[in-house]
């Protein structure tokens, strides 16, 4: 089981701040495709991946990063700190 977290407008579109998901996906991209097929809200949230960043185990990564060893995966818009 992977803890999946969503922040800012991604969280609003998915409707929950986090959830536990069982997956066999090999990469982040495969995992996103798997989510998109589940329900429309995922399809809506992940419709433009250029507007979304991803982190595995609290470190920024890419969509082609492997899920090996991932206990936590987070999706969010580009950060606006400072």
């Amino acid at each position: 089981m992977i803890k999946v977290l969503y922040f800012a407008w991604v969280r609003e579109r998915i409707g929950v701040p986090y959830e536990m998901v069982e997956t066999q996906s090999g990469t982040v991209m495969e995992f996103v495709e798997e989510l998109k097929q589940k329900e429309t809200r995922y399809e809506v949230a992940f419709s433009d991946l250029s507007a979304i960043k991803v982190a595995i185990n609290q470190e920024l990564c890419e969509f082609d990063t492997k899920l090996t060893g991932a206990t936590e995966i987070a999706f969010f818009p580009p950060m606006t700190g400072g």
């Binding site: 922040f7 800012a8 982190a55 920024l60 987070a74 969010f76 818009p77 580009p78 950060m79 606006t80 700190g81 400072g82």
Partner: peptide, 8 residues
């Protein structure tokens, strides 16, 4: 901090 620290 502006674009790499996770704040929104």
């Amino acid at each position: 901090l502006k674009s790499r620290a996770p704040f929104w």
